[in-house]
Write a protein that binds this DNA or RNA. Structure first.
Lengths: 149, 149
DNA sequence: CCTTTAAATATGCATATACATATTACAAGT
DNA sequence: ACTTGTAATATGTATATGCATATTTAAAGG
């Protein structure tokens, strides 16, 4: 008989699809952190880019994209927004042809204000999950981000 | 002394930020499923909407948005794309003012082709994670999607 | 030095996402 | 029936994301 769509399949997908479940989690978590940061005028994605730029010196766009499991072109545009806001500056990297985001004084000042807010949001999340379960989730999320494509 | 940004904080954020980690996972997993479905011309997000529409009859946009932990306005637009492709039809729901997505014959035919592809992608992911760990991840992801905002 | 080539980044196009606000559609009250 | 209020959906604006392709930049080879 032909492979017609079965209700059991549909239920299986709705309950178990890794992409659906992971994206649902990302939506929920992102909304929580974005709401917390809204008074500062940045989103959690931008916050993490600022943090990465400040933590790692001479990290090119391409290498940063690898670290963040993000497409280079996506990162290029996201960094451009931060540059337009004056929070980072794009400089030439030491490796040939590379560009490197460098946090500005304005970006640094914003980061100083943002970190306590991030800490609160993160604390609320770990309280919601339970510390041990969040730790386990962290490990599993890392594995999920490395799924072969 | 003033609360200057500390390298320890930056490291903490890069390694533990739930939003960063969850979004990284969503990016990686989404890329894998999108790549698998590309020959059919749909993305994993659209696939899950088709499945939901087929599984639940008379589910309004608003209720569907709740089920998927998605903003109503986001869902409205995503459904419009599917309607433009002829994969669903928007009909009046039984509840006042509601609209309900209904899968078309064309959408159903596509779904029949897409389900085996989904199954393969899902199998590759569970193989990568390990069955038991994926099961645990599933539970934790559900909790993450319900984090209070 | 000049040309070629390859690596790195940028751009065109498209979907996904969310908040704020506008519109629409219907129920309830008069 | 008419008006009004409210619930549901749609729209304006903005960021995030990725693939395919174009552009740029500098190393390598002549």
């Amino acid at each position: 008989m032909p492979a017609k769509t079965d209700r059991k399949d549909l239920l299986d997908i709705g309950q178990n699809c890794a992409a659906l479940r992971t994206r649902m989690a990302a939506r929920g978590v992102t909304r929580a952190y974005d709401a917390a940061l809204r008074p500062l005028g940045i989103k959690i994605t931008q916050f993490t880019l600022l943090v990465t730029a400040k933590y790692e010196a001479d990290l090119s766009i391409g290498d940063m994209a690898d670290v963040l499991a993000m497409e280079r072109s996506t990162l290029t545009r996201n960094l451009k927004l931060l540059a337009d806001m004056g929070l980072i500056e794009m400089r030439k990297g030491s490796a040939p042809r590379t560009k490197v985001p460098v946090i500005t004084r304005k970006g640094d000042a914003l980061l100083t204000k943002a970190i306590p807010i991030w800490r609160d949001a993160q604390a609320r999340l770990t309280a919601h999950m339970g510390k041990a379960r969040w730790k386990e989730a962290r490990t599993l999320l890392t594995d999920l981000s490395l799924v072969p494509g």
